[in-house]
Write a protein that binds this DNA or RNA. Structure first.
Lengths: 334, 334
DNA sequence: TTGTAAGCGTTATCAA
DNA sequence: TTGATAACGCTTACAA
C-alpha cells in the first residue's frame, strides 16, 4: 500500500512541505499560482491526508466509540444505524465495542475506547453494571460521554432514552381498558434503568385504574436462553389474564413458551412487548407492541455527543432527552 | 484528557525515552533493575502506549474495515458479531461502514476505509454493485481483502459465504417432496452473487425431480418497502402452490402480503425463506427456513483476513469457503 | 510568499 | 547498559 504524502508533492514541485500543506488548506499567504499547481497535482495523484498523522498532531481521532451490550440485537443495531448516519455526516467514524452484558467486559472496552483515543463515547450500560465509577473517572477527565437507553442517574451525564415510563403506562392502560386485571410483568434484570422506568409506568397505570399491584406477578429474567421457561410456569400458576413483556427478547420468549404449553393465547392472554420489528404483525396471535424509537435515539445521542466534542453545547445542561414511543394495538379479530 | 506518555516516565525516572521504551518492551539489553523500576512506575500510572503514534510509526492501524449494505439487518449484525469476536481476540478493532445498497456509497466508504488506514477490509457488496474495479485497484495495491456473503467471481479474492446452492436445493427439494409443483421464487436483485447461487440451487432441484422450470415464476424484488406487493399479485395470478423467498426480508414481506390478501396460506402455499431468527417458530403459519450461519461466516472471514494481514496464509489460495446451511422444517399441524 | 524547524508519541539505529 | 537522534505525516511558529 504505497500512499502518497505531502512530501511527495513537495519534492515533485520543488516546494517545501509547509508550502504544500498551506496550499492544500487554502491559506491566504500562498501565491495563487503555487496554490493552483499544488492543488492540481494533489488531485491528479488523488492525495489524501493521513488521518493518523493528523490525529497525532491534533490529539483527536474523529472517532466515536460506541459501547453496546450486543450488536446482534434489533434495537441496538438500529441505534447504531442512527449513530452511524449522523457520524458520517459530521465526519466521524464509529468504532463498535460489545460488553456482552458483562461488567468486566464493559470496563475493558471502555478502557479500550479511551486508549484508542476516541473523541467521545456513546454508552448503553451492561445489565450487570451497577458500579459506574469507571465512567465517573472519565467524566472527571472531561471526556465527552452520552449515555443512551440504559443510563445511570448516578452520573450527571447527558442521556437519551425512549420514554419508557409513558410507553409502559400506555401499554398497561391498553390492557386494562380491554378488561385485563391480572397483568403479569416479565422484565429484565433490575439494575438497568429501563427496567425501573417500565415497571414504574406499569405500576402507575395500575394505580390510576385502582388495580392492586401484585408483587408476585412481576418476574425478572436474565439473558439466558431458557430462563423464561420457569418464570412462565410460575406465572401461569397465578392465572394472569395478560402478559406485559418488557423487552423484545422476552416478548418472543413468552410467546414461544406459551405456545409450547398450548396455552390458548387469544382467549386468555394478551401480550405487549417492546418488539420493534414488523415481525409482530405476522405473529399468531397478534401481539400489541410499544415501538422503540431506536433510530432516533441513536441520532439524537450522536448529535449530542458530537456537539459536546466540538464544544457546541446548545443547551447549558442537556439532561435526559426522552424520545416518545408508539403503541401499536393489534387484535386477533382483525 | 491528560494522557501519560513515555516522556513522562522518562522525566520522572531520569532516563531517556528510548530506555523507557526498551524497558517496557522487555528488551534484553536493559538492566533488570531499571526494567523493574520502569515497569512498576508505568503500571502505577496506568501507562498505555498511544496506538495512534504506533500506527504512524508502524504504518498499520490494527483496525479492520467492515463494509456491509446495512447494519440494521439481522444477518449482517450477526456477521459483525462474529467478526468482532475474532478481531477482539486477535487485538484488532472494527470500524463499520454502510453502503446502504448504493454503489456510489460503496465507493466512498471503501475509499474512507483505505484513507483511515484500515489494515484490511471485509466487504459484502451492495446490491447495485456490478463494477468491481474499485476493489481490483486495492487488490493490486496488496491491501488484504476478504469478501463475504455477497461476493464477486470477477475478483480473485478469498470469499466466505453460506452454501447457498445447497441450501436452496434442500429447500426446494423439501417443497417438492411435500407435493409442490409450482414453486414461486421471489428473490433479490440479480447482480448479487447469492441471488444466482440460490436460483441455481432451486433450478437444480427442479431438474432433478423432473419439474419444468417456469421463468415467470421467478421474480426479482428490490429493497423498497412495498416492492413485493405487485410481485405477489403477479405470482398469485399464476396459481403457485408454494413460495420460496430467497431472503429474510422477502420472506416476511411475502407473508405480510399474503396475509393482507387473505390467501389461505396453510392450505395452498408453503414458504421457505432464509430467515435466520427463532422468530420463524412463532409465525403463522409456520414457515420452514434455511438458516444462514451468520456468526460463523463472520468468524471465518475475520480469521482469514487477519491471517492475510499478518501474512499467515495457511493455505496457498483460500478460494471460496462455503459454510453449510441448515434446513428447519416447520409444519402447520405440529 | 516561501522555507526551516519543532513537535505530536513511539521505536530503531547508531554511538557512547 | 543507556542515550541521542531520526523518522513516521502533518501543521504551525518563526525566519527569511
Amino acid at each position: 500500500m504505497d500512499t502518497i504524502t505531502i512530501k511527495d508533492i513537495a519534492r515533485a514541485l520543488n516546494l517545501s512541505t509547509s508550502t504544500v500543506s498551506r496550499a492544500l488548506r487554502d491559506s491566504y499567504e500562498i501565491n495563487p499560482e503555487t496554490k493552483r499547481l499544488v492543488i492540481e497535482y494533489a488531485e491528479r495523484l488523488d492525495y489524501r491526508p493521513n488521518p493518523i498523522a493528523l490525529s497525532l498532531k491534533e490529539n483527536r481521532s474523529r472517532v466515536i466509540g460506541v459501547i453496546v451490550p450486543q450488536i446482534a440485537n434489533n434495537f441496538f443495531s438500529q441505534v447504531i444505524n442512527g449513530i452511524e448516519a449522523i457520524a458520517y455526516n459530521r465526519g466521524y467514524n464509529v468504532i463498535i465495542f460489545q460488553s456482552h452484558e458483562s461488567f468486566e467486559r464493559e470496563l475493558l472496552t471502555v478502557q479500550q475506547a479511551v486508549t484508542r483515543k476516541a473523541d467521545g463515547l456513546l454508552i448503553s450500560l451492561s445489565s450487570s453494571t451497577s458500579d459506574v465509577s469507571h465512567l465517573r473517572t472519565l467524566q472527571e477527565k472531561k471526556l465527552p460521554i452520552v449515555l443512551f437507553d440504559r443510563v445511570s442517574a448516578e452520573l450527571d451525564l447527558p442521556c437519551v432514552t425512549a420514554d419508557n415510563f409513558a410507553g409502559a403506562f400506555a401499554a398497561t392502560e391498553h390492557l386494562i381498558q380491554t378488561g385485563r386485571r391480572r397483568i403479569a410483568h416479565v422484565t429484565i434484570p433490575p439494575y438497568i434503568s429501563i427496567t425501573q422506568e417500565r415497571l414504574a409506568g406499569y405500576r402507575a397505570a395500575l394505580e390510576q385504574y385502582g388495580i392492586p399491584y401484585v408483587e408476585s406477578l412481576v418476574q425478572y429474567a436474565g439473558f439466558g436462553q431458557y430462563e423464561v421457561e420457569p418464570i412462565i410456569d410460575d406465572l401461569l400458576s397465578q392465572k394472569p389474564d395478560a402478559f406485559f413483556a418488557a423487552s423484545d427478547r422476552l416478548a418472543l420468549g413468552c410467546l414461544a413458551a406459551l405456545k409450547k404449553r398450548n396455552v390458548a393465547i387469544p382467549e386468555t392472554v394478551s401480550l405487549i412487548g417492546f418488539t420493534n420489528t414488523p415481525v409482530a404483525d405476522l405473529l399468531a396471535p397478534p401481539m400489541s407492541t410499544v415501538e422503540q424509537p431506536a433510530l432516533e435515539i441513536g441520532q439524537t445521542a450522536a448529535e449530542q455527543l458530537i456537539d459536546l466534542i466540538e464544544d457546541k453545547p446548545k443547551k447549558p445542561k442537556p439532561g435526559t432527552v426522552r424520545i416518545p414511543t408508539r403503541l401499536h394495538v393489534r387484535t386477533s379479530t382483525q
